[in-house]
């Protein structure tokens, strides 16, 4: 009973924290993006101001919309993204719901929020939102395959090399960096997987060259075209949370190094330092992978993005899988 209450409190606190961090990182993303483009950019708290403004606006539901799906989609997508963080170990801290879910659940939560967004687009009854939702589904089907290959290979490596812990549990990868358990060929394989995951991130977050479902100059923000007020605020949070979530997943899987342990810390100090270190790593990852990528490139077309993921990135992830397997079997 005590444990349950503790978990509830920790979970609530964590959700509040990621909510603030997601918007803060979103603000930082906008500032860095502006600076890279020789602009000044908005104040770093702009996303909070936007949220407050949107919450004060009227929530318009189009006449032709399927009302329950239209209003429900933002809640489902935002909630599933918040749930995501309950399964992520932060630094040396175990996840709040550790042991109750694994990598596969996390993938489902990511997909669920994407599907919910698409459902909201379809439900709004607008042909442009319809196009956006179709694009979202196509994009999702394209990047899920390389992502699944990356995840499965990671678990396979963990299982084969006998890393302590359950192979599908994220804690396994935090306790022992996956780079340290394989040989030279395996390192190359993991590098391939890392690169494949890195290329999946823009698709997963809908940013950078893969902002196709929300293409502003083509389909006017696509699937969120009909959203306003509270619903739009929820979608904005979802986008910020997705960027944060995928960066956090990347840090957990590929960049798990602790800062406290090499310094010889222990106890509460270790947990606090590693917790902060974790968010620093997430922030840097988000800036490099999402902000810089979206500043450096234009937008692809949906079939080009699909081809990119299903041929190039999938090939890269399979190469990683083969190299890692070779390393473990030979």
């Amino acid at each position: 009973m005590m444990g349950l209450i503790l978990r509830l409190v920790a979970g609530a606190a964590l959700m509040l924290l990621v909510f603030v961090l997601a918007l803060l990182f979103d603000g930082a993303d906008r500032v860095v993006n502006a600076r890279l483009q020789r602009r000044i950019g908005p104040p770093i708290l702009q996303p909070f101001i936007d949220q407050l403004k949107l919450l004060g606006k009227e929530n318009i539901v189009p006449r032709r919309a399927v009302v329950w799906a239209f209003n429900g989609a933002p809640w489902v997508s935002a909630a599933s993204m918040l749930l995501f963080f309950l399964y992520i170990p932060m630094g040396s801290l175990p996840p709040v719901l550790g042991g109750h879910g694994d990598m596969i659940l996390i993938l489902y939560l990511l997909s669920l929020s994407g599907v919910a967004m698409a459902v909201g687009g379809f439900a709004s009854g607008n042909p442009i939102a319809n196009v956006g939702a179709q694009r979202e589904m196509i994009l999702m089907m394209s990047y899920e395959f390389p992502l699944a290959v990356v995840m499965a290979t990671m678990a396979w490596i963990a299982y084969k090399t006998g890393m302590p812990g359950h192979p599908f549990s994220l804690e396994t990868f935090v306790a022992m960096p996956v780079w340290s358990v394989v040989g030279k060929v395996g390192l190359l394989g993991i590098a391939c997987l890392f690169l494949a995951f890195l290329l999946v991130v823009p698709g997963e977050t809908g940013k950078g060259p893969m902002d196709i479902p929300e293409a502003k100059t083509e389909i006017l923000d696509g699937l969120i075209i009909e959203y306003s007020g509270r619903n739009l605020a929820l979608f904005k949070i979802t986008f910020a949370l997705r960027a944060l979530a995928v960066s956090a997943l990347m840090v957990t899987l590929f960049l798990p190094w602790s800062l406290g342990r090499p310094l010889g810390l222990s106890g509460a100090l270790l947990f606090i330092l590693d917790f902060l270190w974790f968010w620093v790593k997430v922030f840097l990852t988000q800036i490099v992978v999402i902000t810089v990528m979206r500043t450096a490139f234009g937008r692809l077309k949906i079939w080009q993005a699909s081809e990119f993921y299903l041929v190039k990135v999938a090939g890269l992830s399979i190469a990683g899988m083969i190299l890692a397997s070779l390393d473990m079997l030979l």
């Binding site: 483009q37 020789r38 602009r39 293409a215 100059t217 500043t295 490139f297 234009g298 937008r299």
Partner: peptide
């Protein structure tokens, strides 16, 4: 034209 393909950086550079 760059803005139309979502390449906002080149758009801003062009404006500068």
């Amino acid at each position: 034209a760059c803005y139309s393909i979502g390449f906002d950086s080149a758009f801003n550079l062009g404006m500068v």
